[in-house]
């Protein structure tokens, strides 16, 4: 697993209070990890601050799984 994926996982475990084993690539924030709309906004903000990137709202709407988040951040940092 990449360093980015590790960090993303860590943030999700911390913010959503879920078990590490649940945070799979396909896990959906809302349907699988119990996030509500405010949790999702908070996650995106945390990714922005942890990786020092900007995720505009129209792009944030397309990030709904762990894998999508990792892919977006990897692309932004590339």
């Amino acid at each position: 697993m990449s360093e980015i994926a590790e960090k993303v996982k860590e943030i999700i475990v911390e913010k959503l209070g879920v078990d590490e084993s649940e945070v799979t690539n396909d896990a959906n924030f809302t349907n699988d990890l119990g996030a509500d709309s405010l949790d999702t906004v908070e996650l995106i903000m945390e990714f922005e601050s942890a990786f020092d990137i900007e995720i505009p709202d129209d792009q944030a709407e397309n990030i709904s799984t762990v894998g999508e988040a990792v892919a977006h951040i990897e692309k932004a940092k590339a």
């Binding site: 405010l38 949790d39 906004v41 908070e42 903000m45 601050s49």
Partner: peptide, 9 residues
């Protein structure tokens, strides 16, 4: 502005 979404509630 970087207010946490839980700031108000």
């Amino acid at each position: 502005p970087k207010f946490n979404p839980f700031f108000i509630p």
